[in-house]
Design a protein around this nucleic acid. Structure first.
Lengths: 392, 392
DNA sequence: GGCTGGCACCCGTCGTCCGCGAGTGCCAGC
DNA sequence: GCTGGCACTCGCGGACGACGGGTGCCAGCC
């Protein structure tokens, strides 16, 4: 049995018990969907967002049908099937004409002559832009999210659970990065001597985050010196913003008696370093297994994507970049700048604590955007609520 | 660019620069290898270890040739090729007779009639048992290991780097678990009030490990109460073994004035919980991407193995079980009890700090056991040396 | 008795071919 | 502008056969 403290295991049990994973495509795509709710990412080399050709209602319906049908079945969809699933009152031949038009507009493509059509990245993009303003998550899942993420005593643990919930609900790779600590207030700054010549610097933020870093001390540092530094630190830096701590300590070093100067300098440097690669330690990735099952990535490619997921720094940057504003972001296929993600889509959203963190999922372009968007949004909202609650 | 603090990125750069990844099968398998260096795992349903039929020299040579040829080429190997690579002075027909014998002994098998032979799990096992007592790592790699893991200021960081080095050198999945903290001495026990009603418990071990856990406090707890608890804690538990801290604090709670009792009880409980799922937070996994490239795991299977790798608790137990004594352990295919690992092999070794931690790699049964064993051993030795050095 | 070359045989792989069917584009007609 | 009809395209899957690597067996040699 997996320990109870293993977030993945816990969530798995819960999700399975709930039977919620049987739900599929529950987020209906209303036929008369309001336009352009989730906006296209402004992407320099793709032209300004909103430069979409006007599509008449029928074409939009057909595109919608092709996308959702392809997403759920995974096979190219032909004119006949479009007529069926879209409940169109016209013949297949008419639909063929429309499809031919959609193809020359670049929204769909045929894998080979005389096969059904498949959405292109542009087609998915249009589909997403045409989604209703607020694809809501169905009740069962919404409750599940609330139940699993509604309470927390520990930010770290909450974020780990969030990642787990996200990947289990979407069956995609989940990514969660913690908010930068810079703006948080320092609650504790402690120096623990481990051995002569080295100590451990502890920084505790009011968000409950703990940063640690070992510090090399000048050989001649005495236990007494350390005590004095400790006092200086706890008096001078407590309550400050973590982003300022480095400067503060550096200044303290200048004014300090010479025997403490080097120690304080070392501490200042350790602080700076720790904050610099702070994000690296706080990226949560879950559900990588889902990638393996997906036909969209063949072995070689899969391997490179997995590798990318191991590079936390890159990942953090990627996700942060993608979530520049408060709206959910969708990056589809080619819209991703990273070469290895050209066959993948990223759906991400920011959440706020003191500063912003972000979360999202990564999967094949052939994903159920409506449900995924709804899920990401619901999880982000719940996370934010719980975090706010947590910090009172 | 990946941040410098990203161990994977750093090692990758280093390994590539060194050109060491071009090295392949450098660990020669001496023809007159001493017997049974690495012993078979005692596995109840497999019969006692050491129950190996005596094999004459030629059969052993042939088996060895088949294993190493199959490992490096990946294709079933026929009698003709065996003659070539093993430099045998007999004809292919003779070898065929020997191979037929090896097959009926269960060491090798044919994927289908009239194909070359492939080692069975039993064949690999025999090969491993027949390895020379001390397959040494070649000089270049040994130096690389020493350079990359020779120094450290921080155990956490060192272990992360170890995992990275292991996976890069072997191109397999690396697993590293930190030693249990139970035996370590407590250097600092601090309680940081985060908000009314909750605080963060910090435990710092002399190994530099930091454990944290949030504690729910009774609503009526005052800041003053917290100060008193803090003093009690720092006076009473500092220097004790972490494994004993729970008991100590529980006792303190009983003797404490009533207004502090509940607080101390909460702290005691938090301590117990934290230590209980301590290992879960300290499992390092690297190189998962390598699994994706391997033909041995088809998609469905691959996905389950990746999932297994996300369950840190299971993983920790698995690795701990496998490294019961100080010798390197090899678990080949069927020898693994976990169903999903029946096509995989685990090569692991313990290392000691205050108590034992373990490390190892996981990959397809078709792996280069000699090199992998040498690498795991070298890395474990280096890790231990650096850790010892670190704690002076 | 053990080793050998020779030989018949097995069977997976690969390329070719062919029929089927899904899907298309186009067209004439309503 | 929509429709049914029709010819066409092309991928897929099964059948077939040549090829070749590898085997087991056997008669003969040392």
């Amino acid at each position: 049995m997996a320990s109870l403290s293993d977030p993945a295991a816990r969530t798995a049990a819960r999700v399975a018990a709930d039977g919620a994973d049987a739900v599929h495509l529950e987020v209906a795509v209303p036929a008369d969907a309001a336009r352009v709710a989730v906006e296209a990412v402004a992407d320099a080399d793709r032209g300004a967002p909103g430069d979409e050709e006007p599509l008449d209602e029928r074409k939009r319906t057909i595109l919608r049908a092709i996308v959702s049908e392809y997403v759920s079945r995974g096979e190219p969809v032909g004119s006949k099937r479009v007529v069926e699933v879209a409940r169109l009152e016209v013949s297949a031949a008419t639909v063929r004409n429309e499809m031919s038009a959609l193809e020359s507009l670049g929204y769909i493509a045929q894998p080979h002559t005389s096969a059904g059509r498949v959405p292109t990245d542009k087609g998915y993009r249009r589909f997403v832009d045409d989604l209703s303003a607020d694809p809501a998550l169905d009740g069962a899942r919404r409750e599940l999210v609330q139940e699993l993420l509604g309470t927390a005593s520990d930010v770290e643990d909450l974020l780990a659970r969030t990642s787990s919930v996200l990947s289990q609900l979407t069956r995609l790779v989940s990514l969660v990065i913690a908010p930068a600590v810079d703006a948080a207030r320092l609650k504790l700054c402690e120096l623990v001597g481990l051995s002569p010549g080295s100590a451990l610097l502890l920084l505790v933020a009011d968000t409950g985050r703990v940063e640690k870093r070992s510090v090399e001390l000048p050989a001649e540092t005495t236990e007494h010196d350390l005590d004095r530094v400790r006092i200086v630190l706890s008096e001078q830096v407590r309550g400050r913003r973590l982003g300022d701590v480095h400067t503060t300590i550096s200044r303290l070093a200048e004014d300090a008696p010479s025997e403490l100067r080097e120690v304080l300098r070392a501490v200042a440097e350790a602080t700076a370093r720790e904050l610099a690669d702070d994000t690296v330690h706080h990226v949560f990735v879950g559900g990588q297994a889902s990638l393996a099952g997906d036909e969209a990535f063949e072995r070689e490619h899969l391997s490179r994507v997995l590798q990318l997921l191991e590079e936390r720094a890159t990942l953090a940057r990627l996700l942060a970049e993608a979530t520049a504003d408060d709206r959910p972001t969708v990056r589809i296929g080619e819209e991703n700048e990273v070469e290895d993600l050209r066959a993948a889509s990223l759906v991400a959203q920011r959440y706020q604590l003191v500063t912003a963190g972000s979360l999202g999922v990564l999967g094949p372009t052939r994903m159920d955007y409506a449900t995924v968007l709804a899920t990401v949004r619901a999880v982000a909202d719940q996370l934010q609520a719980t975090l706010t609650d947590l910090s009172r």
